Measured scan of single mutants.
Amino acid sequence: MIVFVRFNSSHGFPVEVDSDTSIFQLKEVVAKRQGVPADQLRVIFAGKELRNDWTVQNCDLDQQSIVHIVQRPWRKGQEMNATGGDDPRNAAGGCEREPQSLTRVDLSSSVLPGDSVGLAVILHTDSRKDSPPAGSPAGRSIYNSFYVYCKGPCQRVQPGKLRVQCSTCRQATLTLTQGPSCWDDVLIPNRMSGECQSPHCPGTSAEFFFKCGAHPTSDKETSVALHLIATNSRNITCITCTDVRSPVLVFQCNSRHVICLDCFHLYCVTRLNDRQFVHDPQLGYSLPCVAGCPNSLIKELHHFRILGEEQYNRYQQYGAEECVLQMGGVLCPRPGCGAGLLPEPDQRKVTCEGGNGLGCGFAFCRECKEAYHEGECSAVFEASGTTTQAYRVDERAAEQARWEAASKETIKKTTKPCPRCHVPVEKNGGCMHMKCPQPQCRLEWCWNCGCEWNRVCMGDHWFDV
């Protein structure tokens, strides 16, 4: 396979590697080409510095992935760790964990309700045991953590790749202090920090972006993250068709209702045909949960890209028209025109101005929308079919299609509260000796007794199943 190397943020060049090629071997190839010592090179990928003893497969490097290699003399205490030698983080029983690669970060837990604080980093599902597709590297999971809308060759929703760059020099040479644990960490600028490894760059702020994971991409090709779309790892039924499908869209209502993408497309087109989208002054033209839940309008309007190009163009047109109407304007009634106009409040005669090729020149009556006339309008008909009709959803289907309910059931079956801080902690095999993952707590306690870890627990039921 081919990976592209950008040395000291210059133009990239291809390097041929195998899945079992080590990072140090990659350094040696680059060092020979650039005429520099291999031990002064640092390989940066997806916000993480890659260790010498890791392989291309370990690092989730795919065909035509772009890695950054910078030349920086080692500072005291760094060289041993980078070589894969006596790194205290690798000691058996050590409590410190390697910062998780962005290629394996899962933010789907952050669609849980606000009262489930902490689960994004504490609760991990076991539903990723799908067998890898044919042709994928051994052991590589097909679980997708992110979804994007690819405006490039795909023109559809695709699995996405999370990447990070330095907000100062805009190069992907920043190593994160810690990985993101929720969508806010990724979507809110300057929320996460790190250290830029580019020479002479003092940058410390992280800037995240997404790429389409279905095809090789260049540095400049980015895609918009659709953070309401998630892999259906909890096997929730769709609120409309009641099938279990994946991926799904999880509405931001209190129940976190789930809808499959085909039904979401149908829901949007139906509402669009009836012009029953909601115009929100802050958000724009949007839709609420299909069950009509309060405070559930979709905030990231790129989710409506699921409509496809033709329907999305209609959505944008109707949204612009609705904006004009909300501002007190009118639409030209001549067939084939429909231009938005903003006449004076007491102006009865409205002319669709033909300047700049935008208007048709038609003069019409503001009251009856017919060709302009003197005197009273002959008839004014009330528009028919403008009443909002509820999208029919079966109550039982709505009850079963809740992301929140599956989460709470998982928590109930696989977790116990920490005796000190009461945060839910998952036990997935292993011994009875637990350690609270909350940095402010870190209590060592017994899963069996529910009390602080002691010699009695150690001698009596340390390794009970």
Rank of each mutant, 00 (worst) to 15 (best):
V3G: 02
V5D: 04
F13C: 04
P14F: 03
V17S: 01
T21R: 03
K27W: 01
V36M: 05
L41D: 00
R42C: 13
N52F: 00
P88L: 13
R89L: 13
A92Q: 13
C95Q: 14
Q100W: 09
S101D: 14
L102C: 10
T103I: 06
L107M: 13
P113V: 08
L119R: 15
D126C: 06
S127I: 10
S127T: 12
P132Y: 10
A138L: 12
V148R: 01
K151P: 14
K151N: 15
G152H: 14
P153K: 10
V157F: 07
L174V: 12
T175N: 12
T177A: 14
Q178Y: 08
G179D: 13
S181D: 10
W183M: 03
D185N: 02
N190E: 10
R191Y: 05
E195K: 13
P199R: 07
P199Q: 09
H200G: 15
C201S: 00
C201E: 00
E207S: 07
G213Q: 07
A214K: 09
A214Y: 07
D219I: 07
H227Y: 13
L228Y: 11
R234P: 05
S246P: 01
L249V: 08
L249W: 02
V250H: 03
S255E: 14
R256L: 06
I259P: 00
C260I: 00
L266E: 04
V278I: 12
P281R: 07
L283Y: 13
P288L: 04
P294F: 06
L297Y: 05
I298W: 01
L301A: 09
H303R: 00
F304E: 01
R305Q: 11
A320C: 06
M327N: 14
C332K: 03
R334T: 13
D346W: 07
E353G: 09
G359M: 09
C360A: 03
G361K: 05
E370V: 05
A371K: 09
A379Y: 14
A383N: 10
A390D: 14
E395R: 11
E395W: 09
A401H: 04
R402N: 06
W403N: 03
E404A: 09
T414Y: 12
V425P: 02
N428H: 11
G429H: 15
M434V: 06
C436R: 01
P437L: 07
P439N: 14
R442G: 09
R442M: 06
D464W: 03
V465G: 15
